[in-house]
């Protein structure tokens, strides 16, 4: 499969009253056609910021993309002016946001809002656009879409609104759909509906998906590949099965150990990760996970590891220590 998107060395900073926050510190990854990439991490690890930086959605000031490159169809997204990136955003790369309650305009009908990206990007007339909106609302499982296009967001439940968000993201048939925690605000049974829907649409439409989440459970059944982020870095990347069966970075290991599993019959004490995530007021000069890491050695306090090939094909981890032996590589 050909590479659709190639991001390298992406760095984003925010100016705050406390100082400069180094939110993203050099993120590099590639997305292949039709691939589903999961990006996992805790709040403040830079997972959303790195995606929003790519699409020029970081408000400046206070935010600023200070370095990096994001190649999409031979052009660098980061070098585009507003006019150019607007042509990409919503048509070739679209985003589904987390909160279906606040992402809609309450005074416009669902039909108008769903059709809006299509009208803007193709210049289609209202009638044609609404018809297309009905088609996509139908596709995402809105019952009676023909009538419901005339309703307003408050007449839709949370799960239904998230379906509309997805329809809006798909209406221009994008090559990449970025889903930024699209199910976090929803109940588990509704979350299951949305995940099944996205799987079906991916198989039907064949777009690539970047799914941002803090929940390792969700992407286990969804992603082809997973990037784990911590402190503004990708600290581990691997095919989905390798990440879960053979995690190589102490943070990933800790994260998996801290999750209870439904199928455990015997009680097992959760392995918690002590300490707190970094504040990122300084760009880490050594491993950002070192203060919380139980494998840390002298080198971890001096040098920041970059992604290195570890056991398994396409499996990379940014750690000086092999957690299996407890020794340096």
């Amino acid at each position: 499969m050909a590479e659709l998107l190639k991001v390298s060395g992406l760095e984003t900073q925010f100016r705050t009253r406390e100082g400069i926050v180094h939110a993203v510190n050099g993120v590099s990854f590639a997305l292949k056609e039709g691939e589903t990439l999961g990006i996992v991490g805790e709040s403040g690890c830079g997972k959303s910021v790195s995606m929003m930086s790519m699409l020029g959605l970081i408000p400046n000031p206070p935010g600023k993309v200070v370095a990096g490159e994001a190649l999409f169809e031979g052009a660098d997204l980061l070098k585009m002016n507003n006019e150019q990136i607007r042509k990409v955003r919503g048509s070739k790369i679209s985003v589904v946001f987390q909160d279906p309650m606040t992402s809609f305009n309450p005074v416009l009908t669902i039909g108008d809002q769903t059709a809006e990206p299509f009208r803007i990007h193709t210049g289609a007339g209202k009638k044609e656009a609404i018809e297309r909106a009905i088609k996509y609302l139908d596709l995402v499982g809105i019952p009676n879409a023909k009538d419901r296009v005339n309703e307003y967001p408050h007449q839709f439940s949370g799960g239904m609104r998230q379906r509309v968000m997805i329809a809006m993201g798909l209406i221009c048939e994008p090559q990449i759909l970025i889903a930024d925690e699209p199910t976090t605000a929803l109940d588990v049974t509704i979350q299951a509906q949305i995940i099944e829907l996205v799987k079906r649409l991916r198989d039907e439409l064949g777009m690539a998906i970047i799914w941002i989440t803090h929940d390792l459970g969700i992407i286990a059944g969804l992603a082809d590949r997973v990037n784990v982020m911590y402190g503004g870095y990708i600290i581990e990347t691997a095919p989905v099965k390798d990440i879960y069966s053979n995690p190589q970075h102490p943070y990933t290991i800790g994260l998996l150990g801290s999750l209870p599993r439904m199928d455990e019959m015997e009680y097992r004490r959760l392995t918690s990760i002590d300490g707190l995530p970094p504040t990122l007021l300084e760009k880490p000069s050594y491993c950002p996970f070192e203060p919380r890491c139980k494998y840390a050695v002298e080198r971890c306090r001096k040098e920041n590891p970059t992604l290195m090939q570890v056991e398994g094909e396409g499996h990379f981890a940014a750690c000086w220590v092999n957690p299996k032996t407890g020794k340096e590589y």
């Binding site: 049974t189 299951a192 286990a220 059944g221 599993r261």
Partner: peptide, 21 residues
């Protein structure tokens, strides 16, 4: 509800049949 809870395990997820409400 039980079948809607995602498992942090791609091997299990592959084989699971969900009851979707």
């Amino acid at each position: 509800l039980l079948s809607a809870v995602p498992f942090p395990d791609p091997f299990v997820e592959e084989k699971r049949q969900r009851i979707i409400l």
